[in-house]
Design a protein around this nucleic acid. Structure first.
Lengths: 347, 347
DNA sequence: CGCTATAAATGGAACGTTCCAATAAATCAA
DNA sequence: TTGATTTATTGGAACGTTCCATTTATAGCG
């Protein structure tokens, strides 16, 4: 049944009674071939169960159609949503994106990038792992392969970035909490080795500044960007003498964790402590209580990144402009007013 | 900076003053090369920024080190967890898995498989998209590329499957509901074009049978395997004259949807209506109320699938045994007793 | 009919590796 | 010293495609 030796273009040529060049032309959909010949060739292809060998082709063409998508945490639904947005665009362009997970591990990331490069990818869309060294992409850049960063950027690097307006999002969220009457605020999760962290924290601090929240009433708790991290942050925060009454969380996972920890203490997010997330993953809407979060148009960012990548490949450049996506605050149930300071809020 | 023409093995040979064969040997870590020569070559590799061309190599070797992972719905956290389990194993084996998403679309799946095959994958781990035609994998089988199905199987196919014991899981869950005093039961979500559906539904029906729940008191509502589908199922179920008091859901996403719909009606899962999910995704534990679900050891199944694949590749066979993973019911808050039929349940 | 113009098909070199068989150099045994 | 053995290194022929430069067939025109 299964012919052992895999068929090549030459086998097809023999089968169809044409030359290998003709077969190649048919494979590429060239109009130079007489339609009848083309169908004959196509039939032969079908008959022998031929599979195109893209490796061999790339040897001559140096122009693959695969794009690598390197993601730091596939279990975060946020990245899955991002990937889906990209795929929509790539599919339309006849490009197949291969996704690889680095699990937030720079060593693993190194391996994955190496493998992708060896495979001859046309471009790389990357959300770099935490702790990525500044030089990690130098070789890839030198090889002339276009790279686009999504969501995260590296400290000093000329690689284009597609990301939401983290600063603005944090300002929006923080102002919302202040308007709700909260005067002792916390920022939960993330760590300072992430540029995004500084952007989001920076927005938080700026809003505090503008609205006269003194530094002594701001609590910053670093932590893992996961549910577990969020739980830990909340515990730390409530252990203090003058605990905060509201928190802006680094992302939704942290927010979910904080809410879970609240429930464990018999407290309710929204009523007893205000929680705001970041990213607005699909789950946020369906949580209980529903999570107030900064919406970043995840799928839109994914589409944007894919478009930028396609353009870079097409114009064979390695440069592109950054894109900072608009954000908006989606107010739900988790961010109620401060009970001890019922200022009220019209909005 | 970036040398335009990419360096080849020959450039390195020139740089290091050896022959291309020597470079090739060094690249493969052969012990035949004098250590000093090897270091000299490695230095040259570093200096010229060489990237190995795996396509060219495969032309001779016909033995790539990439494995394709084809997943039907990346946004379902279940599959992300599965992927993570596989990656652990593959990483240790020095293999890089490329993940591709089919978004439950057989046409897209066709494209993805084609692309992966052209890329010369060593093997394929697949969770087939809904509506996959029985012949979809014939060509791949004929090409001698090992395939392993995970979670889902195709109606008639000799391809090995790694999946949980769906039947048993459904029996466990259903018996739990019956012990809780429920006498009118529903099965929510999924559709009959999925083999898994029949396995899970079969377990449900069998348990009903054994415990004397008449067919008239069993309600089966097909639906999308998503939150949205779950919401619709619940609405349909409660619209009837003699609505059920408990439901076993096709998977956790459906269960979350059903719980959400309950809340919209002012009802509470656990207290007013019992809900049991399937898969026990990480989220289940953290939901409110926490979801009772059938745990399938997702990561373990992923690891198992990866191991089977590695063994198939190594022994160059296309056959392997099915693996049916053990399941267990994790009882949480969402599956309380029937209020109108407080039989009680010691366990 | 001969000529040119167009259309269709073809052979061969190249792409960057691997691997076999062969060579060159170093070591050993007698 | 000579030949045998071991250790390092090397050319060259594949592998399956693309693409350029040709060749062959077909049509058009006077």
């Amino acid at each position: 049944m299964a012919s052992r030796a895999k068929a090549t273009i030459l086998d097809i040529a023999r089968e169809a009674g044409v030359s290998k060049s003709t077969v190649s032309l048919v494979l590429q959909g060239s109009g130079l071939i007489r339609p009848e010949t083309a169908t004959r060739v196509r039939k032969a292809i079908e008959d022998v169960g031929y599979v195109y060998n893209r490796g061999a082709a790339n040897l001559r063409k140096a122009h693959s159609n695969v794009i690598g998508m390197v993601i730091n945490d596939l279990t975060n639904p946020f990245f899955a949503e991002l990937a889906v947005g990209m795929e929509r665009v790539f599919q339309a362009a006849g490009v197949v994106p291969f996704i690889a997970n680095t699990a937030e591990n720079p060593v693993r990331q190194e391996e994955v990038l190496k493998s992708l490069m060896e495979q001859g990818v046309a471009g790389l869309i990357v959300s770099p792992a935490r702790g990525t060294t500044p030089g990690a992409f130098r070789r890839i850049e030198a090889a002339g392969v276009p790279i686009v960063f999504t969501m995260r950027r590296l400290p000093e690097s000329r690689i284009p970035v597609i990301a939401p307006d983290n600063h603005r999002g944090a300002v929006l969220a923080t102002e919302h909490l202040i308007r709700k009457g909260h005067r002792r605020l916390a920022f939960f999760g993330g760590s300072s080795d992430l540029v995004v962290y500084h952007e989001r924290l920076g927005g938080f601090l700026e809003a505090c500044e503008t609205h006269g929240i003194p530094a002594s009433d701001r609590l910053i708790v670093e932590g893992e960007t996961s549910r577990k991290g969020g739980m830990a942050c909340l515990e730390t925060a409530l252990a203090g003498a003058q605990p905060p009454t509201a928190a802006l969380c680094f992302n939704d996972a942290v927010a979910f964790g904080a809410m879970l920890a609240l429930r464990k203490r018999g407290l309710e997010a929204g009523a007893d402590f205000a929680v705001v997330g970041f990213d607005d993953v699909a789950e946020a809407e369906h949580y209980s209580p529903a999570l107030t979060s900064v919406a970043v148009d995840t799928a839109g960012l994914g589409e944007r990144a894919a478009h930028v990548m396609l353009k870079m490949i097409q114009s064979r450049t390695t440069r592109a402009e950054d894109h900072i996506g608009a954000v908006s605050l989606v107010v739900r149930e988790s961010s109620g007013p401060d009970r001890n300071n019922e200022v009220g809020d019209a909005a």
